[in-house]
Simulated assay, not measured.
Amino acid sequence: MRWIVTIDHHGGCMGLGEDVDGVPARGNPEQAEALPMDFRLHLASGEVLFEGRCSDIDADWWHGFEPLNYLWQPFRCRRLSYRRAGADEPWRWLRP
């Protein structure tokens, strides 16, 4: 699943992500604009560390875990919330 970090509240991960084949790859804001979902990665306390854009989590929830899996160990991200890009809907927690 393609995903790109577009806002970094922690430092050092701007543009971090994966390409459509799951290979680690850096991206830029122009590439992120084409992706349909916004996501946030949180600490267990709820603090947001990273925000970004990704492929459609509703269509493929299993691969929606990829940003969380990638940043779980190095930054202690424990939760992912998401919503449609540009929507004014509440953030939803990613749950299988």
Rank of each mutant, 00 (worst) to 15 (best):
G52V: 05
R40Q: 15
L80A: 07
P90C: 05
A87K: 05
Q31G: 05
H42I: 07
Y70P: 00
N28K: 08
V48A: 09
F50H: 07
I57V: 13
E66R: 07
W61S: 14
A59Y: 05
D60H: 06
V20Y: 11
R26W: 11
H10G: 07
Y82T: 04
A59F: 01
Y82C: 00
I4V: 13
R2T: 14
E66M: 09
G22F: 02
M37C: 11
P74K: 02
E66G: 02
E89A: 12
P67M: 04
E30M: 12
L80G: 05
R95G: 10
A44W: 08
E51P: 01
E18N: 13
I7T: 13
P90F: 04
L16E: 12
I7N: 12
G11V: 11
L71I: 06
A44Q: 11
R95W: 08
H63C: 07
C13P: 05
A44Y: 03
Y82M: 03
E89V: 09
E18P: 05
I4G: 03
G86T: 01
A25G: 01
S81D: 15
R84N: 10
P29G: 04
G64I: 08
F39M: 05
Q31A: 10
W62F: 08
Y70N: 15
R76F: 12
I7W: 08
H42D: 09
P29I: 05
D21F: 13
R84W: 12
F75Y: 14
L49C: 02
G22I: 05
P74Y: 02
G11E: 10
I4Q: 07
G64Q: 11
A59C: 08
L49F: 10
N69V: 12
P67G: 04
G22Q: 00
L71A: 08
G27C: 03
W72N: 15
F39E: 01
Q31W: 03
L41A: 02
V23G: 03
M37S: 06
W62N: 10
G52Q: 04
N28H: 11
P96M: 11
H9C: 12
P96Y: 14
